Structure formats: structure tokens, C-alpha cells
Simulated scan of single mutants.
Amino acid sequence: MIDFRYHLVSIVAIFLALAVGIVMGTTLLQDPAIELARRTSDELTNTNNGLRADLDTLRGREAGNDAFISSMTPDAVAGDLTGQRILLIETPGSSTAVREAVQQVLGQAGAEISGRVTFTEKFLDPKGTGVIDGLVNQLKPANMIFPTTATTWDRAAALLGAAFVTNDQAQVGTPNPATGDVISAFETGGLLSTEGEPGKRATLAVMIAPERPYEGEDAEAQAGALVSVADGIDVAGKGTVLAGSIVAAAVPGDVINAVRDESEISKRVSTVDTADMPVGRVVIVYSLREQLNGRAGQYGIGKGASAPQPPVTSATPSPTTQSGS
């Protein structure tokens, strides 16, 4: 019969064996585990340093390319838009820096800026469509007829298009008789603001897209409102280019992708998704020139772009061109 002391000795022996095993195992595995961790850390550090070096190289190349293109831009666009008067349109969330850079290149191309129209968030608010409808019904001329499928923003865009742009060269630089009332009403309603003399009608328009897509439950409606404005301005004048920067993924609130997804509108309104780059500003000029010749295109490097730029031609559009895009 096994007594209690035997059990006690057995239990102590078992725990002693476990302790010795743990100590021996830890000692034997410690050096290989530490060495593996050290090698892994070194490899990750080397990889990270390599990626940083590659990124620095790419940034250096991009800076060099941008500097070169910027220096060549005046010659690349010289005379391309001589005789054209251009309306600049800023949207909620658009970049002032991009707009200023675009405006500078348009000037280098020989264009005259008629003024700037800045839409407010209130204009894009779906809850405020009743106010917009009321203004449009009050201000539209009797001969302005809207399609039965026209949305609130479609109707507003047609009215604003008639106020800000024209495809008749004889009317360039002159106000539409109803322009003053239209601008005043929309400004008083907090829907837009103006700078310069946008009421003295332009021939072309450049709309600066928001830097980031709109978000939230109204994002798609907000983007659609700006698509309507771009299209309405395009139809009333000789052409419109919507310009902005590339968005990593297609989302409902991205205005440029919204235009590109509308097959009929994309046949009229051009888009450029590289406006934050010097090359993109040149592409905007070329796109406007293409609009003057009755064509449109989707340019850049993002989703839906058909090419980085329009086909380059040596022909300079005539400032007396009558047909719109």
C-alpha cells in the first residue's frame, strides 16, 4: 500500500521535472527566438528604408517634371484661348489654390476672366429645393421652357447659364437683361456669391470640383446638383470643363465621376482630374480649346478617364466660333 509520503514525493518530483523542463526549454529556445526577431526587424527596417528612398526619388522626379512643365506652360498654351471670356465656378469644398493656379494658366493662354461664381452649401441642400424652384419660377423669362424631366437644379442651371454665358460672340461681355435680377436673387437667398463681373457674359466656363467627394446621405444628390450646373452652363455657352483632383475610389459624392457616369452629359461636358498638377492645368486649356471645336472628353489618370489629354493639334480656335459644345 502506497502511503502519503510516497504521494508527496511523487508530486514534488513531477513539479521539479516541469520546472527543470521549462528552464531548459526557455534557455534552448531563447537565442534562436531572439535571433529570428532581430533578423525580422532588420529586414523590415531595410524594406522601410528602401521604400522611403523610392518615395523620395519619385517625389524628386515629380518635382522636376512639375518645374519643367510650369516653365514650359506659357509657350504650351500661348494664344490658345485668345478672344475667349471665361467664367470660373467654385463649388463647396473646392481648393482656392487650385482655382488660382488654373486662373493663372488661363491668363497665359490669352483668356479674359469674366468673374467668379461661388456656390454655397445651401444651394446643394436637397431640403432647399423649394426655395430654388420659387426663384426660378419667378425669374425665368416666358420663353424659357424646361423638359418635364428637369430637376430643380436642371432648371436653376438653365436660368444661371443664360445669365452667365453665351454662345453668341456678339453678346460676349454684355449682360443678359435679366442677369442683374437673377444674380441679386440668388445672392440674397444665400445660394451663391460672385466676384468680378460674371454678369457680363463669358463664352466658356471652368468649374473647380470639390477636393474630396461629398459624404453622407445627401452626397449623391449634392454631386448631381453640380453635374446639372456644369451641363446647364455648357449648353448655354460654348463649353464647360469640370476640373479637380483624382479620387482613389469611385463614390457617389465624387462630382467628376458623376459626370463621367452620365453618358449623355459626358458627351458635352469635359472633365480633367489632374487640375492639382501643372500638367493638368495645360490639359484644361486644351480641353477648352477642344470644346470650342464642338468636342468633349474625359481626361486625366483616374477612373473613367479616356486619355491623359486631348489630341494635341496646332490649330488655334477662332474667337468667332458660334456653335456650343
Rank of each mutant, 00 (worst) to 15 (best):
T96Y: 14
G300L: 05
E211N: 11
Q103C: 02
T316C: 02
G110E: 11
V269N: 10
T240N: 09
S41N: 12
D154A: 11
G180F: 03
W153H: 14
L139E: 00
L192A: 02
L58I: 13
V117N: 08
V206K: 07
V98D: 15
Y214A: 08
P317T: 08
L135P: 13
L44W: 05
I89Y: 12
I233T: 05
N257D: 07
A17E: 04
Q309Y: 05
P317E: 01
E262P: 00
D75N: 13
A202G: 14
A178H: 03
P308C: 08
G134L: 10
G25V: 09
D231H: 11
T271K: 10
T27P: 00
S95K: 06
T91H: 10
P252S: 03
F123L: 15
L28K: 12
A37F: 09
G189D: 03
E35N: 12
L106Q: 13
D133R: 14
N167V: 02
I183F: 12
L16Y: 05
Q298H: 02
I265W: 03
Q169Y: 11
V20W: 01
R260L: 08
V20A: 14
V285Q: 05
L16G: 15
A230H: 06
N137L: 15
D31A: 07
R39F: 04
S114Q: 09
G134W: 14
L18W: 11
V259N: 10
Q169G: 05
Q169T: 12
V247M: 00
V269L: 10
G224N: 09
A185W: 15
T96H: 14
T27E: 09
V117C: 04
G302C: 07
G302P: 03
T194H: 05
T320G: 03
G216D: 04
A305T: 13
